[in-house]
Design a protein around this nucleic acid. Structure first.
Ligand SMILES: [Mn+2]
Ligand SMILES: [Mn+2]
Ligand SMILES: [Mn+2]
Ligand SMILES: [Mn+2]
Lengths: 153, 153
DNA sequence: CCCAAATTGTAGCGTAGGCTACAATTTGGC
DNA sequence: GCCAAATTGTAGCCTACGCTACAATTTGGG
């Protein structure tokens, strides 16, 4: 029977896909990062982070927000009181800061190479979670060289 | 009780998070794209795409590969015969081509801004799925300007 | 040609992240 | 102050993507 060759070109083992498991690991983190970032933003701009508003801004139902918030609470990132604003813990706040910094660098970089603002923001929302420290540093360097770097704020 | 202000600064509605739902939609696609790309690569370099080899290269178990392949088959991207090589359908092959092109552009761009090859390949594996057509075009333009563009092959 | 090893397949389980439907609580306009 | 509307919470249900454990099939060396 016409089986394709199995050990034909088996000269030496094929390389692994550039870092197996890393993408999956990043995906398990990114919802938490986006929530922390958005909660911080809502608190600082409106004074509260309410379930309904999170749901509206994230484009999911309030049920999804509730379940995710429960998970973040188990992970020690937020605290909640029934029918009150969601609050960030110390860890949650720190995470939100890191996330925002990373987010702004990615947006700034994309814009610096000519991407329109709306596209840059949309692309960054997903890309930001897959940019390594080294690449982020290269983005910052690129921005600094063009005098576009906003240090920490 | 000290409820945070709810309708305080409600001057006009806060903007949605730069394209709600897009990231989730991309995530549901990206496993399929990576599988299609890898299957094509294995077939062209070794003559066959076997379950075990896919599992090894992707860093998951063969069980995960089987389940994903079943899903891709339901989606019309691959065909399988028990204990034989996985084959790409027309749609699957087309998808693998698009995916490979996109992948190479992202890797090339990252390398062009000074990212080491290994880091570029690792970062690209996740980033590639969140880069819009416009941003991809900007990457290509950037590469062309530096004479680093490899046109499709 | 035979049987152990490798490969492939499947059953069952877990978590993340969605949803609808419905219940409970709070808010605010009259 | 009352009650309808808004908000928040919860009970299932679904799919994607992982896994372990075990079964079935194929392969290849002796
Ligand atoms: Mn963000
Ligand atoms: Mn994001
Ligand atoms: Mn990928
Ligand atoms: Mn992703």
């Amino acid at each position: 029977m016409n089986r394709p060759p199995t050990k034909s070109v088996k000269a030496y083992p094929l390389p692994l896909k550039g870092n197996p498991g890393r993408t999956r690991e990043e995906h398990s983190q990114e919802t938490a990062l986006d929530y922390a970032e958005l909660i911080a933003e809502l608190i600082s701009t409106t004074g509260a982070a309410r379930v309904t508003e999170l749901a509206r801004r994230l484009g999911v139902t309030h049920v999804t927000v509730n379940r995710t918030i429960q998970r973040l609470q188990r992970g020690g990132l937020v605290r909640t009181r029934p029918y009150h604003s969601i609050l960030l813990t110390g860890a949650g706040w720190k995470l939100s800061e890191e996330s925002r910094r990373r987010h702004e660098i990615v947006v700034g970089f994309l814009k610096s190479i000519g991407i329109p603002d709306a596209v840059a923001r949309s692309d960054a929302e997903g890309m930001e979670h897959h940019v390594s420290k080294k690449t982020l540093a290269a983005f910052v360097k690129h921005l600094k060289r063009r005098g576009l770097h906003k240090p920490s704020r």
